[in-house]
Design a protein around this nucleic acid. Structure first.
Length: 259
DNA sequence: ATGGCAAATATCATTTGA
């Protein structure tokens, strides 16, 4: 099973690229963040034609998440229990025996900002929900845009980013707490190279400069980790020129599981 | 500290992202 997480930064603005990429990479499960549209605005037809079932949790203008799957989805959940605000940031489905949770974690804007405090509280609520509703012996995949670079090797210039948003100690502690509970950062388990990034700042031309951060993650429970064959960040998608369609500021992250 | 780019909205200016 191939599971992918990708912050597309508007599915409507990214449609042509997303379809080309799906045709080339053939994900079984595609978790999208920042679809930036209402459920009824999601471009369903071209994905249905390709054999995908589509479950969305959208909202106007901002945020919004979706799971597309070639395998049947059961027990789909939206507005996950920890998501007490109005933002559409979480959707989950049972696919085969895997509980797939697709997350768009609060950005936080700046350390100390009210939005940053909201980010920490949101992550605390996610942790509490996980501990109350699930166990590390289940088949779990919590993937998405975490808006956290877990370690300095995930940051192009750690000194510049020291204790900044996406890299601050309280954010990293909350990420680590998910791992301590029993989840594994699938990419980092299989690839110890620094300089592997999934997001680049468009405003500073970050991609062309190689200035990126690894903030999109697939966190999996032990039994799924043991089934993991490879994980890669598809930087080629970000680099590709396209006639009509600019790239997202994020690259897809791909996890292949045996079976 | 600032600015840079991109997307959406009823837009020609503002908000948000990370």
């Amino acid at each position: 099973m191939r599971i992918v997480t990708w912050n597309v930064n508007s599915i409507r603005a990214r449609l042509d690229r997303a379809l080309d990429w799906v045709d080339a990479q053939q994900p079984d499960v595609l978790c999208l963040q920042e679809i930036k549209c209402l459920d009824e605005q999601f471009p369903r037809e071209p994905f249905l034609e390709r054999g995908y079932a589509i479950e969305t949790f959208g909202q106007k203008t901002y945020n919004g998440v979706a799971i597309l799957s070639r395998l049947p989805m059961r027990d789909v959940r939206r507005a996950l229990p920890w998501d007490q605000d109005k933002d559409a940031r979480g959707i989950s489905a049972l696919i085969e025996d895997v509980r797939v949770v697709n997350l768009y974690v609060v950005n936080g804007k700046e350390v100390g900002d009210p939005k940053y405090l909201h980010k920490l509280a949101w992550l605390d609520a996610l942790q509490a929900w996980l501990e109350a509703e699930h166990g590390p012996d289940e088949l779990l995949c919590l993937c998405g845009d975490y808006n956290i670079a877990p370690e300095d090797i995930d940051v192009y210039d750690p000194r510049r980013w020291k204790e900044k948003i996406l890299c601050s100690t309280p954010e990293r502690q909350r990420y680590q707490r998910l791992l301590d509970w029993g989840l594994f950062d699938a990419f980092r388990q299989l690839d110890d190279r620094p300089g592997q990034y999934s997001w680049w700042d468009t405003r500073t031309g970050g991609f062309d400069r190689g200035d990126g951060l690894r903030i999109d993650h697939l966190l999996v429970s032990r039994d799924l980790m043991e089934a993991a064959q490879q994980v890669f960040i598809d930087v080629d998608e970000r680099a590709r020129e396209h006639e009509t369609c600019k790239p997202s500021d994020h690259a897809p992250v791909v996890l292949d599981l045996e079976g």
